[in-house]
Design a protein around this nucleic acid. Sequence first.
DNA 1: GTCTATAGAAGGATAGAC
DNA 2: GTCTATCCTTCTATAGAC
Lengths: 189, 189
Amino acid sequence: MARTPAPGTRDTILTAAAGLFYEYGVRAVGMAQVVEAAGCGKNLLYKHFPSKAGLAAAYLSLVRRERERSVTEVLRWSTDPADRLLALAGEVADRVRRPGYRGCAFRNYLTEFPGESDEPARVAQAYLADSRAQWDRLVTGAGGDELLADRIWLIVNGLYSGSPGQARVAVDWITELVRAPTGTVRAGR
Amino acid sequence: MARTPAPGTRDTILTAAAGLFYEYGVRAVGMAQVVEAAGCGKNLLYKHFPSKAGLAAAYLSLVRRERERSVTEVLRWSTDPADRLLALAGEVADRVRRPGYRGCAFRNYLTEFPGESDEPARVAQAYLADSRAQWDRLVTGAGGDELLADRIWLIVNGLYSGSPGQARVAVDWITELVRAPTGTVRAGR
DNA sequence: GTCTATAGAAGGATAGAC
DNA sequence: GTCTATCCTTCTATAGAC
């Protein structure tokens, strides 16, 4: 038997890469930088990931898993669609307010690589489409119409690309829109 | 006798660079690509621009000038603050719907170079701050409060990073918010 | 000895700058 | 065009664990 492979190597590398990619951007971070941060050799990196694009795709998939775990957590709070919608809004706002927040990882990648259709781009686009669909389901589940879904998605987009100070404004607004005093939840005032 | 310098060389280079930078991103475009698109020699490029960062700053300044010219144009339509606000919203929506639209050039640069404080980053941040101030002035001029200004800026941010299809939703919503049936323009419903 | 890991050089392409 | 530097990727050399 030869030397036993370290068990968490892939995760170590991926975590290091994810931190760098998110903070400085995928394009700005070189593979040598990832290797240095992970404290491993280049060989090991290319053994676990086929290329930089593959590593970037794994990074975005990791962010997706973390985000989905957090979302699933807060959605457990209630079975009421309106409550779940507000819980989701609060989850996003919390993330935006976290120190070190530098925008949405998926939107950032698509901005860094416009028009690209490689694996990480597909991961990013798929997540954004699924995220939008989830918001829409919650809105319609809460009795909202298509217009309200469009408007809330507009706020969510603004929330992701705006300053952290706007988080409260966004959450309060969504709350107000969903908890419409008329009883029915529609987009119009 | 030396050859007389072509008069519009700087503009030719800058226009070519601007098109490439906006379409593919600043990081993705090399100086050789700019030279090829401009149809000039490399030495001429570095005669007119000190570095790539300098060229990028000139590109963002050009975008700012064009945008301000367009905004000034539509703001001439009316002296009524609410009308001007809606005219500004329409201008943004038109730009977002234009073919080849790939997001806000300033926001894109700051995403491509996070944490940077070089000249183009300062140009981008300055424009965004000034733009936000302009929106705020128009909202308060139309009788809106600070909350409404925050909310409209949220919509504008969402408009810039959303899909072109959301342009109409955004404009209609801003119109509805500004032309509040109660007569007074406030954020609350 | 055999396998895994690290460190670093080499390759080939491409970057910015002159 | 050239020069230097850096990019991603591969390969070599060496050290260490079994």
